[in-house]
Amino acid sequence: MEPLLTGGIDVGSSAVKLVLMRTDGAGREELLGRRVERLRRRDPLEVATRCWHDELLPEAGVRPDEVAYVATTGEGDRIEFRTGHFYGMTAHARGALFLRPGARAVVDIGGLHARAFTIDERAKVLVQAMTSQCASGSGQFLENIARFLGVTLEEIGALSRRSEKPEKCSSICAVLAETDVINMVSRGIKVEDILHGIHDSMAGRYVRLLLTAGARGEVLVTGGLAADTGLVAAMRDDAQRQGSTLEIASHPDSVLAGAIGAALWGAHRQRVLAKRGVVLRADPA
């Protein structure tokens, strides 16, 4: 089959993730370009548009009209140049399968919430469970904690893993947990022990979510917090403590899972539409 170039744009609450992919429709799928841009209070649509047109495509040497399908996910449903939009969970499921073909469950931990779901070998979502409204299970929460502690997000994982005596964080409420953290700082608790305690508290919630969704076997952590090695390690420890056989893993491109999945679904849809003779182009008035 003819190789296709497709794009995936995942607009999240704290970052925009973009990928360019090439697929041949016979199982060969290649990630040609990637971009993660933190929003830092900028307009996400503007950031996505600029990153796509001015950075990702020129870097890959690809013209916009060479891209057969631009698929959005997350909050990308207002991007004008999209061809189609996929719901976040659908996109993360497909992206997870690309990154880890054996994965049969995904936990997507984003800036505002976390969601666990099981998938089949086609990336069809089977069962899902999501955190409640409380922000304690979110990346934003961890970002706030990092700010209180004066560390960068990138440092969190390594610091947490250095901890020898994690301090238990007694609350699952973001507001109260932040109070806990302030108290810990006043009590002179080491930063790494605080972070490990926070990671343990969050990891417990995610593992419970996974078990609620009926997860078994390989699990891929996706979303922004997948890059937090301390959190992933804490999830593995928690699963072990609970006697679960979950094999929890992350991937260097886990943060891009939504964008990758969207691009791959876009390629699939493009081929389906082509078979039906449907061309999605702006029709001249």
Binding site: Y69, R82, T83, G84, H85, G266, R269, L273, L280, R281, A282, D283, P284, A285
Partner: peptide, 9 residues
């Protein structure tokens, strides 16, 4: 009918 609009999937 006079304004071009792109179809979406």
């Amino acid at each position: 009918r006079a304004v071009p609009r792109a179809p979406l999937d």
